[in-house]
């Protein structure tokens, strides 16, 4: 099973992932046209900066997700088939409990409405838009095993 991994240190802070995320979640799926949509599409990935590091963050799709536990309306659910935390905007009440408990701070709000939004890992695409847009390979869509192997390989080289 593939997931989004972050290769910390490779992010140059260009925010291409943020733009691609919004285009993917627009109605037109086109950058130029998306600019004139109302409401404007919102990002689900956030390039954060701190302590000299630039890091792109999005929903980690935790298995025992605090946001799912905290959701009073049942809008936030764990889908065991896809291994994704999914959110149903129709029954979301906008209480922001999920926002308060998410340890990554990656749940936002739909513009001009009281509905939470978060990464859906572009479940309709082969590769998430943010990963495809990343010019440096800071975002990877791969398996846990491949990621471990990559990191072990780096360790070996550094010895």
């Amino acid at each position: 099973m593939k997931e989004i991994f972050i290769d910390i240190g490779r992010c140059v802070g260009c925010k291409s992932c943020e733009l691609a995320c919004r285009v993917e979640h627009s109605r037109s799926k086109n950058l130029f046209a998306a600019l004139s949509e109302s409401p404007l599409p919102r990002r689900r990935v956030f390039v954060e900066y701190g302590d000299g590091k630039k890091v792109p963050l999005q929903c980690r799709h935790c298995c025992e997700a605090p946001c799912v536990d905290a959701c009073i309306s049942g809008a936030m659910k764990w889908d065991s088939e896809t291994n994704l935390v999914v959110h149903d905007r129709e029954i979301c009440v906008g209480c922001w409990m999920c926002v308060m408990v998410c340890p990554f701070g990656v749940i936002g709000r739909e513009k001009d409405s009281r509905v939470a939004i978060k990464c859906d890992r572009c479940y309709e695409r082969d590769e998430p838009a943010c990963v495809e847009a990343c010019p440096t390979g800071a975002l990877l869509f791969t398996t846990l095993e491949e990621t471990e192997k990559l990191r072990r390989g780096r360790l070996v080289k550094a010895l």
């Binding site: 925010k15 291409s16 691609a20 950058l31 600019l35």
Partner: peptide, 22 residues
Amino acid sequence: GFGELGLCCRNCNMGPCRIDPF
């Protein structure tokens, strides 16, 4: 996308800056 929209400025070294079009 910032380049496509003309929103990236490299004219001084306080930058580079870009405006969020959304």
